[in-house]
Design a protein around this nucleic acid. Structure first.
Length: 520
RNA sequence: CGGGGUGUGGCUCAGCUUGGUAGAGCGCACGGUUCGGGUCCGUGAGGUCGGAGGUUCAAAUCCUCUCACCCCGACCA
């Protein structure tokens, strides 16, 4: 962060109620409130730094500005899980940029994005930046840093040709035609479907492939008006995409609203004969359904042989469905999407003036006029990064810490603490390495050797030194790397310290080489 | 909030279906043995079976209610 001219802060974890009222985020549901006063426990700090900046930065001459901090965040997650992966309290590096223009803001965005990439690489992690949804934070451009791991909780869609990667909720879904355009479609006809409500059941009951059903979902837009959304029966409507077209999160309408809008109980909604006042939007694939089945907007009935545009007005066609593995790549027509699992360790956003305008954070520009700051915000999950590092670096015996984030660089296992020669060799090396600035763990417990070896592997310190019978035999210690059991070799006691320092340097150099060549 | 699951010595769990004297492994204590990849043998301590109510001669076991935790989903660094 300092490399990209960041200014380190340490904001209060308690955020005054008024500040979140300004941005409207006092309604965010993960907030913890702090009594007796009207405070929230900090879940992210856009409002706080915006308040600081609007009070201190008055001129374009003070821009660009980057502030960051590393602090405990509090979010009342509905479902904490996976230990450090997702907790109600976690450590986060959060950064915020303030600029004059959108171009400057995007330059800042790029800088922080690269900085994040370097940090993950420096932590020994292989990460990728993917196209993402900006969610509750808001803003228009956003990418997530994912650490690929089989145990990850996120699904990443990737293009087989270009390597392009996107979060499933963001990835454009290329339409696959349901039926040939020249199909003859008989006249629409009502069929009785008593108690037949779900796609699966309708499909089975009418012996019609799910690709020919048009799923009709009623949502309530942010402004309170009902919106009818259509997707093909075998597809999943993507609420993030829907929210983007409606300008805010939409929620599925409750049964009473569905009945009021469609005149039918849930399960029989369809686009035919809806009031003209109701906005209807559809996934692009729906346009290719030529002999479809839809709810008849009355109980226990559906229409078959439905043709969009003939039997109901052409809706607005948009990308609304969730992309899936096997879809054509949106980047390269010859590519196919496939999925990978990942852990989200960082997220970067270009915000525009979302917060500066709602909080009236302005500076005087070159021409003397007051303008809102162009902002970006950036989050790096520190505690989660450690969890991701363990996911990416472990074996059957335990953790294999990357040297850069290992709690200790070296562990010295003193096999027999009752042997004065071994003890002296171990303690001498221990103090030499400490003097050289390394973090060293000396296991001089009175335990059987096997126990100490197992514990040492479990903890995963990258460089292992065994002080044992080699001391008496030939005046040697065994030195090796945790990641490779075959790497150990006998080293004369006099050379041990230098040898360890050499290995530590080698491990650090390997990671640095990755950082130097890393391109996000 | 919806779906599923689990609560039994310090820890991990078996026992519950088909009610009948609470078990194992690990850990702990003691004795011996072993001593470079979680030694082996023996002895021992330790639990009102998450809580409340009910059924029954008898409840860890069956029924009702309740609490807690875990997993899957909505959400997110």
């Amino acid at each position: 962060m300092d490399r990209v001219a960041g200014n380190e802060f340490f904001f209060p974890a308690l955020i005054p109620h008024e500040l979140l009222e300004e941005s409207g985020r006092d309604k965010v549901d993960v907030l913890f409130t702090a009594k007796p006063h009207d405070y929230f426990l900090g879940f992210t700090h856009e409002e706080v730094i915006t308040d600081v900046v609007r009070n201190t930065i008055k001129s374009y001459k003070q821009l660009p500005f980057l502030g960051y901090q590393i602090q405990t965040k509090f979010r009342n997650e509905p479902r904490p899980r996976g230990g450090l992966i997702r907790g109600r309290e976690f450590l986060m590096l959060d950064a915020y940029t303030f600029d004059r223009t959108e171009e400057d803001a995007l330059v800042a965005y790029k800088k922080v994005r690269e900085s994040f990439g370097r940090m993950f690489t420096r932590c020994g992690l292989a990460s990728i930046a993917i196209q993402a949804d900006s969610g509750a934070i808001g803003g228009s451009l956003s990418e997530e840093f994912m650490v690929l791991s089989e145990d990850g909780e996120d699904t990443v869609l990737r293009c087989s040709v270009t390597g392009y990667a996107a979060n499933a909720e963001r990835c454009e879904a290329i339409p696959v035609p349901a039926e040939p355009a020249d199909t003859e479609v008989p006249a629409m006809e009502e069929v009785s479907t008593p108690g037949v409500k779900t796609i699966d059941v309708v499909s089975g009951f009418l012996k019609v492939d799910a690709t020919r059903l048009i799923k009709t979902l009623v949502f309530v837009a942010p402004d309170g008006s009902p919106v009818v959304a259509l997707v093909r029966g075998d597809r999943e409507l993507n609420e993030a995409k829907l929210g983007r077209t409606l300008g805010g999160p939409a929620r599925l309408a409750e049964p009473a609203v569905v009945e009021r809008v469609t005149g039918a109980p849930v399960g029989f909604a369809g686009p035919v004969g809806l009031p003209a006042s109701v906005r209807i939007i559809a996934d692009r694939e729906v346009a290719t359904v030529r002999d479809g089945v839809v709810g008849a907007n009355k109980a226990d009935a559906h229409f078959q042989h439905v043709l969009p545009g003939r039997d109901f007005p052409e809706p607005e066609y948009l990308d609304l469905r969730t992309a899936v593995a096997g879809d054509q790549s949106p980047i390269d027509a010859s590519g196919v999407l496939y999925t990978q699992r990942g852990i989200e360790v960082g997220h970067v956003f270009y915000l525009g003036t979302k917060y500066s305008s709602s909080m009236r954070a302005e500076y005087d520009d070159v021409d003397g006029t007051a303008k809102f700051f162009e902002m970006g915000c950036y989050g790096l999950g520190v505690s989660r990064t450690f969890a991701a590092a363990i996911e990416q670096h472990h074996d059957a015996d335990g953790i294999v810490w990357p040297i850069t984030i290992a709690p200790y660089a070296v562990t010295i296992i003193l096999v027999n603490p009752a042997d004065p020669a071994q003890t002296e060799a171990a303690e001498t090396l221990y103090s030499d390495l400490l003097a050289a600035g390394l973090d060293v763990l000396l296991d001089d417990r009175i335990e059987r050797p096997g126990v100490k070896f197992k514990d040492g592997d479990l903890i995963g310190v990258p460089v292992k030194v065994t002080v044992g019978k080699g001391v008496a035999d030939g005046g040697t210690l065994e030195i090796g790397l945790r990641r490779d059991r075959n790497s150990k070799q006998a080293v004369p006691i006099a050379d041990a310290s230098a040898h360890v320092l050499g290995l530590v340097k080698q491990l650090k150099d390997e990671i640095q080489a990755n950082v130097d060549t890393h391109v996000v």
